[in-house]
Simulated scan of single mutants.
Amino acid sequence: MQTINVGEREIREAVTMDEAIESVRRGFVDLAGGEFEMPTRTALRDGQFLVMSAHHRSTASAMFKTLSLNFQRTPAIAGTVVWSETGRTEQLVADAGAVTTLRTGAVVGVATDLLAPSDAGRLTLIGAGAQAPDQVRAVHAVRPLRRLTVVDADTRRAQALLEALEPELPDVELSTASDAEAAVGSAEIVCCATNTTSPLFPASALPARVHVNAIGAYRPTMRELPDELLADSTVVIDELAAILEESGEILHALEAGALTKEALTELGTALTATDAAYGERTVFKSVGVAVQDWALARLLAEKFLP
């Protein structure tokens, strides 16, 4: 068995955000079509260690990811992604940190392209951590930005993020903020990428017409969005079983009676719907599922395996 190792720099050089978005989009369509065997991920030590896997039936390919999360260290995400195919003697082992941030950005790109107003160009990003750069890149890929506001309790971290992204956003108005409630008031798209345990803003702070992505909370104890927003929005999720296992905001809203399971639409289903109608406010909630990692690993396999 030959193993091909792919590091963060190689991943970044090989895969564009447009490619990642399209691959993740196809993956979710296949998920809706029953093409995947995908167990709910294993979470150890309250989510500090995660194990994920997915098998794509029609290609006889599989992805296995193990990673550790520690927001007090740099990098916060560390681990490996392994790609294998039946009948092939080569396997690919990739850096899980780069794959995770890229695939999380990509799914936000897919959801934003589906749900955000076609003319939306004002993004407020809450959280300037490891996931933040690819959140911006993904939204910009599908809704070219006119303005970007980064909210973080550490304004120096927010400013550092803007300085790093500035060469990629030459015509975008850039600013930082420390008050999330005020910063979302004029946004057309909001991305939440934090590890908070309580809502970041009240629903009343948002404009009537807005799309919100929430990807930071991935455990039942974590919660970025208020019940009132979920009750008053079209809510699209990555995958129902994973959401009911891990999404603190969805579980809280269900328990409070602000939301029903019937009101939740899986992303793959939404992508294949022919007569979908969405309200003025839309929410995409993701805890991250293995099909996203499979989609990125497949791209890498196509580029790096002989």
Results as ranks from 00 to 15, higher is better:
A60K: 11
V212H: 05
P39M: 14
Q72F: 12
E245W: 02
S204T: 15
V110R: 00
T282N: 00
E188L: 07
V93R: 12
L200Q: 07
E228W: 08
P39E: 09
P39W: 05
E10R: 09
E262D: 15
H252N: 12
G288Y: 10
T101P: 00
L229K: 01
T89V: 14
T89G: 11
A76H: 07
L229F: 06
K285A: 03
A138T: 08
Q292K: 06
F201H: 06
A141K: 07
G109N: 08
S198G: 08
A138R: 04
V212A: 04
A128D: 11
L44P: 04
R73M: 09
V139M: 06
V29E: 15
L148F: 06
A60Q: 13
R157D: 08
E85G: 08
P202I: 04
L230Q: 02
V190S: 01
E173L: 15
H140F: 03
Y278H: 10
T42M: 12
A132R: 08
L264G: 07
A270Q: 10
I215Y: 02
N213S: 15
V51F: 15
M52D: 13
P199R: 06
R73Y: 10
H252S: 14
A43Q: 14
R209C: 10
L174V: 12
H252Q: 10
P220F: 12
